[in-house]
Simulated scan of single mutants.
Amino acid sequence: MTNSQRVAIVTGGSRGIGREIVKRLAADGYAVVVNYAGNTAEADSAVAEVTGAGGRAIAVRADVADENAVAELFDTAEREFGGVDVVVNAAGVMPVSPIADLDLAALDRVLRVNLRGAFVVDQQAARRVRAGGAIVNLSSSITRFARPGYAAYAATKSGVEAITLILARELRGRDVTVNAVAPGPIATALFFEGKDEQLVARIAAEPPMERLGTPGDIAEIVAFLAGPARWINGQVLYANGGAI
Rank of each mutant, 00 (worst) to 15 (best):
P95S: 11
L199V: 14
L225D: 08
I186Q: 02
E197G: 00
G55A: 07
A180H: 05
V181W: 03
V121I: 12
M94T: 12
S45H: 08
A62Y: 01
L199F: 12
A26T: 07
G82P: 10
T51H: 07
A134C: 11
Y150M: 13
A77T: 13
V96E: 02
P208T: 08
V160I: 15
L138D: 04
N240M: 08
A134K: 11
S158I: 03
V33D: 02
R144L: 11
V47F: 11
L25H: 03
D66I: 05
L102K: 00
D196A: 08
T2L: 12
Q124R: 10
R147F: 11
T51C: 07
I135R: 01
P98M: 09
R112I: 12
A27F: 00
N137P: 08
D196Q: 09
I163F: 14
G16M: 09
I17G: 01
R19C: 02
A41L: 14
L107W: 15
A187F: 00
I232P: 02
W231V: 01
A48H: 05
L107C: 05
G241S: 10
V178P: 11
T143E: 10
L165F: 09
T11M: 10
G13I: 14
R230E: 02
E42A: 15
A59S: 13
V84P: 02
L171M: 13
I166M: 07
L225I: 10
A155N: 02
I21E: 01
K157E: 09
V93Y: 04
T51K: 10
V96H: 00
R112T: 15
D103E: 13
L138G: 06
D175M: 13
G149M: 14
I135P: 01
I9R: 04
E161Y: 06
Q123L: 06
A201E: 14
G184Y: 08
D108A: 15
G133Y: 06
V160D: 05
Y153W: 09
G82L: 11
S4P: 06
T143G: 01
D175K: 15
M1F: 08
D63R: 09
N89Y: 02
A105M: 04
A187S: 04
I232A: 09
I99Q: 04
M1S: 12
A243W: 12
A239I: 14
T164A: 09
V64R: 00
T177N: 11
S4H: 14
A226L: 08
L212G: 01
G173T: 14
I135H: 00
V181M: 07
G12F: 02
D101Y: 04
G234T: 07
I232H: 02
A168F: 13
V200C: 04
K195Y: 14
